[in-house]
Design a protein around this nucleic acid. Structure first.
Lengths: 341, 341
DNA sequence: CTGTTAGCGCGTTCAG
DNA sequence: CTGAACGCGCTAACAG
């Protein structure tokens, strides 16, 4: 609509050369106070804003770091994004986020888009795209992955120890006297889903508790799947006094199934989640779960990228999440409400 | 790291002029099949990807639409963002999102950033920045606001009728026999908070029910504030059988307060929210609330921006949200558990 | 149909 | 300290 004003216009209006304007814009060199003031006045008067595209083109850096997330509507990744934004804040870099929807093809397109936008670095949040594609990108620019492993880039991944997380849950439950513990896992095409299920199985054995395959159901990390899986479990008639869910969302769904059957939490059945979504504090009763400091992980990723950009070689390592005991877990009832659930 | 390959490299390698490469890249003109194939082969072999910054600079359009949101971690706006992304999908435009955190200053900075990035259009999600700033932007490029009114740009705002939304809630409750209805509102620095509270008051009168100022509390749209406000209400000893919250998040908090006091929902107290966040289906019991089709509103905003960009002059209007009756509301108990709450 | 030329808006030498 | 000239990567108008 209205013609956008350029650095050149500012220069002419102020009676100086474009270079001078550029210099005072970037503080590249000293300029006589009077010229500086004159130029700044013009900039203000004309409401001039430098064209980032042109700047990027001229000095080879876009000052933007690409973020490949999966779903913008996800509370989990949303918090990580907020952390990344915070972590980048204060630096000259800005995040550029695109989403892949857990679909390899879309993730690839998203990556392509970021590359065409010439982002200076990349942060990958989860995803199912192959390691090869990420390695290829990592060869061209700093890359940090959050919540997923990328073979060949071990110290570029901020990971959480899922196995240890679930283990804390099982220990807690076992300590409360639970012996028959059911499990609702996530789709094992995702790495963490297999780690968590494995952690469940291993911890059970470690505690000397029976591992009962019929007490494990597989969902897809969504609320509905948790609701469905819990219903199946209850319908099976198999006795159990605790229900471990591989993430909070499925625990929310399971909570509803229990409610529908008139089962009390934790009096009849103890329920646990994983992730510690914000909402987990507000379920009734508040959910015992495993806390992942997602915001902090996002900040960490951002800071790491910044350091890589600065030429340092930071090494990331695995992070142990913490059990948060709230009110959805309690002592095992003396006689499990077997079959009759 | 590795030198990025440019269109020029491709041209030389294929033995054609840069223009030719550009042409087959954009389909701007016909090119002999053999040259085309030759070039495409080189592009593929060199793994060439056009530099969007340069393209933007050359043809004056960045093909990106800026989105000013408030919090990336918000479930509410997250869904809208997803809708925008969907709405833009298929078009050559991509979203560029930055957040303002409900702080005028940060929102202004975010706007500046988007302008410096020379976005072709702008979508604003809520926010507290002054209308003047938005009008200024609107003078330079297509702008659409979601969930907030911008004076002077009436048909560029996709709004929901908050008054009508709350009215449905009150009608529903009145129909169930509730007479003493408490209310938890949002901070009235936000437009919708005042509309909702006003709607509550008006509807009460319309139904011939008493408006009791002492039964209205003001929170800030967060869970904690809802929890606190509900606790205050209960501690006051004033009798009421229904609790209307100005948004779902505060209803979640209130739910917890009720749970802590051992009050049943809906047997002792009916509870309602507003927004219909995804989680509202999974509270116990599932929450009766007012559904805002946030995803669809996002899509609508995106489509509108696209049409504006195409030179059309679409007119937006106000949207009436729908009451979703779930299980947190029921008949008013015969004798309100007065004072004794 | 295709190559040449001229910018897009800005940063950065290189002389002065 | 400052201006002129060149180039970043790509598109578009102009001749052939």
């Amino acid at each position: 609509m209205s013609a956008t004003v350029t650095l050149m216009h500012v220069a002419q209006e102020a009676g100086v050369s474009p270079s001078t304007v550029s210099r005072i814009l970037n503080g590249t060199a000293n300029v006589t106070p009077d010229k500086r003031e004159r130029v700044e006045a013009v900039i203000h008067r004309l409401n001039f804003t430098p064209n980032v595209q042109a700047q990027a083109l001229a000095n080879g850096r876009s000052f933007s770091v690409g973020v490949l997330t999966q779903k913008l509507s996800s509370a989990f990744y949303g918090e990580t994004l907020a952390g990344i934004e915070q972590g980048l804040d204060g630096s000259p870099y800005h995040p550029l986020v695109v989403s892949g929807h857990w679909r390899a093809k879309q993730e690839q397109q998203a990556l392509d888009l970021l590359i065409r936008r010439r982002v200076d670095a990349l942060i990958v949040l989860g995803g199912v795209i192959g390691d090869a594609a990420l390695q290829r990108v990592a060869a061209q620019m700093p890359l940090v992955a959050v919540g997923r492993e990328v073979s060949g880039l071990p110290e570029r991944c901020v990971l959480i120890d899922n196995h240890a997380g679930i283990r804390q849950v099982v220990l807690h439950l076992a300590g409360l006297g639970h012996r028959d513990i059911a499990y609702i896992g996530g789709d094992e095409c995702q790495q963490d889903a297999v780690e968590r299920r494995q952690g469940f199985e291993d911890s059970l054995r470690e505690m000397g508790l029976p591992f009962q395959p019929r007490l494990v159901m597989i969902g897809d990390y969504t609320e509905v799947s948790g609701e469905w899986a819990a219903a199946e479990l209850l319908a099976s008639g198999l006795p159990f006094t605790a229900l471990v869910c591989a993430n909070d969302q499925m625990a929310f769904g399971a909570r509803l199934s229990l409610y529908r059957r008139g089962l009390r939490v934790p009096e009849d059945i103890s329920l646990t989640g994983f992730d510690d979504l914000f909402n987990s504090r507000y379920t009734t009763p508040p959910l015992t779960t495993v806390h992942q400091a997602v915001n902090e992980l996002g900040q960490l990723a951002a800071e790491t990228v910044l350091r890589l950009l600065a030429g340092e070689q930071p090494h990331l390592s695995s992070y142990v999440p913490q059990l948060v005991i709230r009110e959805s877990t309690g002592p095992a009832p003396l006689s499990p409400t077997a079959g009759g659930h």
